[in-house]
């Protein structure tokens, strides 16, 4: 019984210390990324390679996801709106839903699954095989060489991916709306363009940039701090995907609240 009394505060204390140590590590990692981003040298070749890997290679996955999301959204909105005889709002809701919310969130989550995991596994494997140490002994800062190009590439390419996803998602809604739900093409297009404002698209792109940063940051952070051999690589990959996904959803709420308030 006495042991339990001692163990409870001990467990709470050690968890609190771990939490603060973790926050401290993340803050230092963040600071080092910012410092290396704004100081020379920048590794442009690595950056462009990452733009291809993170951006271009993610296009098919994100395009397909966006298409089916737009299609399903059109069907669901049609079912709901027909209960109020308001079927004409399908095109508007699909356009707003995709540009403001689903485009960036779905693309962010897909990128978290695809890119965060791959970045984390790659960097963790490099750590296990002493390649990170080798970089240091070859006068190269691993954060500058490995992390900064990945973070910048994800931050800059996700907005472009989301813009494409927006277009494909709306097209998905258009295809289902006109081919399956009986909407006239011209009126569907007119309803779409009448409702969309520049702010809707821009707010989605700002979200995308934040999500891109989160995806690459979490992948790099967990990979960089991986410990324990092959098992550690697996653990860090899982942590990267889970933490990136949760942070995307949480930051989505915060960003949406800020946009509402403004």
């Amino acid at each position: 019984m006495i042991n339990y009394i001692y163990n409870i505060p001990l467990a709470i204390g050690s968890n609190v210390i771990n939490l603060f140590a973790h926050i401290g590590k993340i803050s230092i990692f963040f600071y080092e990324i910012i410092f290396c981003t704004f100081t020379l040298p920048l590794y442009f070749k690595t950056f462009f390679n990452q733009v291809i890997k993170i951006g271009y290679n993610s296009l098919p996955v994100i395009g397909l996801t966006a298409f089916f999301t737009g299609s399903v959204l059109a069907l669901q909105i049609y079912v709901g709106s027909s209960r109020f005889n308001a079927e004409s709002i399908v095109a508007s809701i699909v356009a707003l839903g995709i540009t403001r919310e689903l485009g960036p969130v779905i693309a962010g989550l897909m990128l978290a699954g695809r890119v965060s995991a791959s970045i984390s596994a790659e960097i963790a494997t490099m750590k296990v095989t002493e390649q990170l140490d080798a970089l240091t002994t070859l006068s190269t800062n691993p954060i500058r060489y490995l992390v900064v190009p990945r973070v910048l590439a994800a931050l800059l390419t996700l907005p472009i991916l989301v813009l494409i996803a927006d277009i494909i998602g709306i097209m998905g809604g258009f295809v289902v709306g006109t081919q399956s739900l009986g909407f006239i093409e011209q009126s569907y297009i007119k309803n779409t363009f009448d409702i969309i404002q520049l702010n809707d698209v821009i707010s989605g792109l700002i979200k995308a940039a934040v999500f891109g940063f989160i995806v690459a940051f979490m992948g790099c952070y967990h990979g960089y701090n991986s410990t324990g051999g092959a098992q550690g690589v697996g653990r860090s990959t899982t942590k990267a995907v889970v933490s990136a996904s949760i942070l995307i959803l949480a930051s989505n709420y915060i960003l949406t609240s800020l946009v509402f308030n403004s």
């Binding site: 490099m126 002493e130 080798a134 190269t140």
Partner: peptide, 26 residues
């Protein structure tokens, strides 16, 4: 780091680079 050279136990070559790129990396 410009005045030292290090041979790691597992070689620690960079997988994504060719042999000549590895050798001249620094």
């Amino acid at each position: 780091y410009d005045e030292i050279g290090m041979l790691f136990q597992g070689a620690a070559l960079f997988d994504s680079l060719t042999v000549w790129e590895n050798i001249t990396f620094a």
